[in-house]
Amino acid sequence: MSTIKELEKKLLVMSKTPELFDAEIRAIKSEIVSLQSGPKTRTAWETVQLARHKDRPTFKDYAFGMFTDFIELHGDRRFSDDLAICGGFARLDGEPVMVIGHDKGKTIEEKGDRRFGCALPDGYRKAMRLMRLAEQFNVPIITLIDTQGAYPGLEGEERGQAEAIARNLVEMAQITVPIICTVVGEGGSGGALGIGVGDKVMMLSNSVYSVISPEGCAGILWRDNKFAPDAAEALKPLAESLLKLKVVDRVIPEPAGGAHADHAGTFAALKSAILEELRPLKKIVPVKLTKKRFDKFSAMGIYNE
């Protein structure tokens, strides 16, 4: 077993020729993340609970705590203003950006109004409107993902929940300004991915990202959602797994005790990670940026041939 220091030394050497050591670099980064999170005492299911912790920062905490000069912009210009997705211009360490994210709300009333961060098509369409605005203003897009999933309901189906998410997947591939997406809590299925296509995709260390909730998966494959802990284990939704699978580029260690225990520490860690990733992205010309994004998502998946 290597120590973090030894691993970091290896990483430094390999980073000089990243194209030769892509797989090794990912494996080492993943190992560092698991070492940083301490001895393996937490199950996948426990991490899911942590990702859903009620005291974790929500969107407005980030908007006002991590950014400055936040100005919220409302509405999809088609039907309504879905509060489950919030966004607007803001500054990050003085740099102008567009920040967009799921908002679970804090008080009971807010949570109700926001359906606990489960967005309607209107929310995804608002997000895309703001992304196009960011493109027009030539500012990078920062998305913060925190949702159980898109809202399953009559009005969502009626107004094209599927199309709204799909349209975002198409258009986020075309956006010509840098996009950095971070899963800060729950990354639930298509509802998360709907604002999750970026040049860099990151996760906070206690967040989860999954194709289906453990409860939903257990209900289908175990025929009973009380098997959610087993499904959570099988789905491998933890940050270190996603890093290994090349779905996320970077895992941001949360302060000791977790994001829910230290908001300020979490903001500092996330902010410096975003700024660090943003710098090289801002130098890439638009056509190369979209080409790289296309190549990045094209490479995702593991199959036999």
């Binding site: 998410i165 799909a166 997947l169 198409v170 258009e171 986020m172 591939a173 075309q174 299925s189 298509g190 991915l193 999750g196 296509v197 990202y209 999954s210 194709v211 289906i212 998966c217 289908i220 494959l221 099988a234 789905l235 491998k236 939704p237 797994s241 996603l242 699978l245 779905v247 994004r293 296309f294 998502f297 094209s298 995702m300 998946g301 593991i302």
Partner: peptide, 23 residues
């Protein structure tokens, strides 16, 4: 829908196929 036996990788196929459509 997505093949949940492949976990997050199946979710990413949604973005991947749509990136193809975008072009």
């Amino acid at each position: 829908g997505a093949r949940m036996h492949e976990g997050i990788l199946s979710l990413m196929q949604m973005a991947k196929t749509c990136a193809g459509i975008a072009r």
